[in-house]
Computed example of a mutant assay.
Amino acid sequence: MTFPLAGLLRVRGAQERVAAERLSRATAERARTEAAAQDVRTSLADLGAQAGDAQTLLAMAAARAAGRSALSDLQALTELHRTAEDEAKDAHVEARRELKGLERLENTHRVEEVRADLAAEQTALDEIAVARAVRGAGSAA
């Protein structure tokens, strides 16, 4: 006999794989935005304070302002990606929990099937033994 919830088990398995894929993508996106923010921090730190004239000083100030604005945007985007990653992680944990519950039910079903098969086999062997004993007792009389 097949597991009655086999179709649901396949669906839950597919849902778990989709949740794992979403978690993987969310983690990659968060890592990319964190790396980009780190690059902006590094480039801001590399801007020197040595200005030869007023135009260079103004250009450096504008570059720093633009860099800080970009860094602020990247930090906000990184926070959004962290939130999305946390949500994807929660969804994956939930999908995994549902899948594991069904897998335990399937395992229990299989164990019960094996027990029933063994019990039926034992009953058949007992019947054969009783029949032989009856035939042996009948021929000895």
Rank of each mutant, 00 (worst) to 15 (best):
R82F: 05
R68H: 02
A37W: 06
G52D: 01
Q38L: 04
Q38D: 01
R82D: 12
R41H: 04
L80Y: 13
L80I: 12
R41V: 06
A66F: 03
L80G: 15
T42N: 12
L71N: 05
T56H: 13
L74T: 01
R41I: 02
A54D: 13
A35Q: 14
R64W: 07
D39N: 15
A63G: 08
A51L: 13
D39F: 12
A63V: 01
L58Y: 06
L57V: 07
Q38E: 00
A70L: 14
A59E: 07
R41M: 00
S43N: 13
A54R: 05
T83F: 10
A35H: 08
A54G: 02
A54W: 05
R64Q: 11
L71S: 00
A35R: 14
A84N: 03
A49E: 15
T42L: 09
L58Q: 06
A49F: 10
D53A: 05
D73M: 14
L77M: 15
A37C: 10
A36K: 08
D39T: 15
A45G: 00
A51M: 09
G67P: 02
A76G: 07
G48V: 14
L47E: 08
L47W: 11
A35P: 03
A70E: 15
T42S: 06
G48K: 11
R41F: 11
S43I: 07
A37S: 09
E34H: 09
D53E: 11
H81D: 03
M60P: 06
V40H: 09
T78S: 12
E79D: 07
A51K: 13
A36F: 03
L74K: 00
T56V: 14
A49R: 14
A61I: 08
T42A: 09
R41S: 05
R68V: 07
L47I: 02
G52I: 00
A70P: 00
R64L: 14
T56A: 14
A61G: 13
R68M: 10
A35G: 08
L57I: 01
Q55F: 06
H81V: 01
A36V: 01
H81A: 09
T78R: 12
G67S: 04
S69H: 15
A49C: 11
G48P: 10
L77S: 10
E85V: 00
R41P: 02
S43F: 12
L71H: 03
A35N: 11
A49Y: 14
S72V: 09
T42K: 02
L58V: 10
L57Y: 09
L77V: 14
Q75A: 15
G52R: 00
Q50I: 09
A59C: 04
H81E: 05
D73Q: 11
A76D: 04
E34C: 06
A54P: 02
G52Y: 00
T33L: 15
T33R: 15
S72Y: 11
L71C: 04
A59Q: 03
R82A: 14
A59N: 12
G48N: 06
T83W: 05
D73L: 15
T83E: 08
A63P: 13
R64T: 11
D46S: 10
A66M: 01
G67H: 03
Q50F: 10
A51P: 12
M60W: 00
L57F: 02
L44V: 10
T83L: 12
S69M: 13
H81C: 10
R64Y: 10
